[in-house]
């Protein structure tokens, strides 16, 4: 599947002060994630998608801000809520849709599905359905980069719920001990499924990284400029051999834990949801800033909207029409 002209990737060698075109590319990626996820939800509610999906809507600034400071050959590891990371690292929506529908044209030939998309060509070592499960992979990738001396970094995305996993603590220790170029990105959307993180987490998660002496930042995840700047500093440190970083971004998922989680009032209020959507929406905040700074105008933003919408619709249609894998695929790829 060919990329559309609009789906250009950012230049490598990231600027501390992106120009208008670079900001707009990031904006477009955020719009792409949002429209993709809305379409995923529609596929679910119209019973066209097997299984479930965990939507990233509301958290777009983190994936895009972080991945925009990475080069295509840098690594990421992702989570069950991974579509945003995948798109931000450069994946094509049509092939993603195909994977979500279990079609042969998908990134993993339909074998992985929503929770396991890997896009190794773009440095995405895979989404992961085990909470915290990818931390070892990220630290291992950083170890390879250090040993091979190729200057790459690895970013490990996870939710604040993963702080419950002792494994994460082990891997953070390894990373700091051996000064590995890995960035731990904690997307703190406040809920571990249906439970507020304050009911499951002692202390401030970021303090655990501080206790290990890891470079730690705690920032607003709804403002892409803050995310970009924070991530850039961390990645540059890592590339210089100064070791890992732990970045905790405050954010919110607008939808349920997964697409089937509709009635949420027993664990969070409608007012809280409304407040984030109305006052802290990462797309709206970004658009307002772009307009206020006169880096663009409404017409351009509307144009991006329209193009992305069409691209997403085309992608979904491509996947709906695509064939399932051949039955013989069931027993291939078990061993390399």
């Amino acid at each position: 599947m060919a990329k559309t002209a609009k789906q250009t990737k950012l230049k490598t060698g990231k600027s501390a002060t992106p120009d208008a075109e670079e900001w707009l590319t990031m904006y477009e990626q955020m719009v792409r994630i949002r429209r993709f996820e809305e379409r995923v939800n529609l596929l679910y509610t119209s019973a066209k998608m097997p299984g479930l999906a965990h939507l990233y809507i509301g958290e777009e600034a983190i994936a895009v801000g972080v991945c925009s400071v990475l080069n295509p050959e840098d690594y990421i590891t992702s989570t069950h809520r991974g579509h945003g990371h995948c798109i931000a690292k450069g994946a094509d929506v049509d092939i993603m849709f195909a994977e979500l529908l279990g079609k042969a044209a998908g990134y993993c030939k339909g074998k992985g599905g929503s929770m396991h998309i890997a896009d190794q060509a773009n440095g995405n070592l895979g989404a992961n359905a085990i909470v915290g499960g990818s931390a070892g992979i990220a630290v291992g990738a950083a170890f390879s980069a250090q040993r091979l001396g190729n200057g790459r970094v690895a970013v490990c995305f996870f939710g604040e719920g993963a702080m419950g996993q002792g494994f994460l603590a082990e891997t953070m220790n390894l990373a700091q001990l051996w000064k590995l170029p890995v960035i731990f990105v904690c997307e703190n959307n406040m809920y571990n499924e249906y439970t507020h993180f304050s009911e499951t987490t002692a202390g401030n998660p970021a303090d655990r990284a501080r206790a290990l002496g890891i470079h730690t930042e705690e920032q607003d995840g709804q403002d892409i400029r803050v995310v970009y700047e924070t991530a850039l500093a961390a990645v540059e440190r890592a590339r210089r051999g100064e070791g890992p970083a732990f970045l905790m971004f405050h954010t919110y998922r607008y939808h349920g834990h997964h697409v089937g989680d509709i009635n949420r009032e027993y664990y969070r209020s409608k007012e809280e949801e409304r407040d984030w959507v109305e006052n802290r929406d990462p797309l709206a905040l970004f658009a307002d800033w772009l307009l206020a700074k006169k880096l663009t105008d409404r017409g351009v933003l509307d144009g991006i909207e329209a193009e992305v919408k069409e691209e997403v619709e085309r992608g979904a249609q491509f996947a709906l029409d695509a064939p399932y894998p051949d039955p013989s695929e069931v027993s291939t790829n078990v061993y390399a």
Partner: peptide, 16 residues
């Protein structure tokens, strides 16, 4: 169960 990781695609999972 078939001796493979359980695949996502319905077309494959049902075979396992």
């Amino acid at each position: 169960a078939m001796d493979v990781p359980i695949p996502f695609s319905p077309a494959l999972e049902d075979l396992t």
